[in-house]
Design a protein around this nucleic acid. Structure first.
Length: 272
DNA sequence: CAGAAGCCCTGAAGGC
DNA sequence: TGCCTTCAGGGCTTCT
């Protein structure tokens, strides 16, 4: 499940493979993923040099010397592979890189997306225009979050999944952050008191995950070259029925459904 | 208008 | 073993 840390890990893994290199040939093996690919995508990618590899929220931004940027979203099951293997099932786009590397976009469930847009208009792309602040950046702080929460009648769990409030959190890291902050996920966003601790733990949980991804990235590159899916140990996510890991807490992790998504939390210590 | 539910899609996992 | 059902969730669309 690629959330911000996974996408950042993919970005860091692809950087040495792509940056400053030319796409010798782009192979597009189907019409699209969630939406159709842009017109003539293969032609527009072939021959282009990658001038920079950036990230906005959960989107990878591949800047090209053609003046266009390739926007990539991994959706739910999307992954990037660096390998010599011949394209197989669910390998939808293959980039042959000058010098021999091969980067493959694989996405079994096809919830991912790719689009091309002029580089100076990237942040006006419909999918990026309304995104909230980057949680690891300076624009994300207690004042901004308090303002965004003001008057909101949805549970704080749902509010944190809203990409216009803060961009890049997904179901897993929202659960982890609320647990670290001791906040009840059912609490209405507009009724949460101080968010200072919440801001701090959101930054922490994302930074920790990026660090963990970075360390496992080296191992993965040595084995099968797959970027993006890593073993993380979660404190609450997926731990229904197990003992809470908060020091001194004797609670048991519960699973509830909010806005159609599973929320894992400890009713004993998440009481703020 | 805000908030919640529906939808897309495939593979993994669990029940019988 | 194998078939069937349920679940996973990012983010847009539709409904209330």
């Amino acid at each position: 499940m690629p959330e911000l840390p996974e996408v950042e890990t993919v970005r860091r893994g692809l950087q040495p493979v792509l940056e400053g290199r030319r796409i010798a040939q782009a192979l597009v093996r189907r019409d699209g993923l969630r939406w159709p690919f842009p017109d003539r995508m293969a032609e527009r990618l072939t021959g282009a040099m990658v001038t920079g590899l950036n990230r906005r929220a959960k989107y990878l931004l591949v800047a090209l010397d053609t003046g266009e940027t390739l926007i990539i979203h991994l959706g739910m099951s999307g992954r990037m592979l660096v390998s010599d293997a011949e394209p197989g099932k669910h390998d939808h786009v293959v980039l042959e890189i000058e010098g021999g590397a091969r980067v493959t976009f694989n996405d079994a469930r096809r919830f991912g997306m790719m689009d091309l847009i002029e580089s100076d208009r990237v942040h006006q792309h419909p999918l990026l225009a309304d995104l909230g602040p980057e949680p690891l950046g300076n624009d994300f702080n207690a004042l901004v979050l308090t303002t965004a929460f003001a008057g909101k009648k949805s549970p704080i769990k749902s509010a944190l999944l809203d990409q216009t409030i803060v961009a890049g959190l997904g179901n897993i890291y929202v659960c982890e952050a609320l647990w670290r902050a001791g906040i009840n996920p059912l609490r209405l966003a507009g009724e949460v008191g101080s968010v200072d601790l919440l801001v701090r733990v959101i930054r922490e949980v994302l930074s920790d995950a990026i660090e963990a991804g970075g360390s496992s990235l080296r191992d993965h590159r040595q084995t099968n070259g797959e970027l993006g899916y890593f073993q993380h140990s979660f404190s609450v996510y997926g731990r229904e029925g197990q003992a809470c890991r908060t020091v001194g807490c004797l609670g048991v992790i519960e699973r509830i459904v909010q806005s159609g998504r599973s929320t894992f939390w400890c009713p004993t210590c998440q009481i703020v």
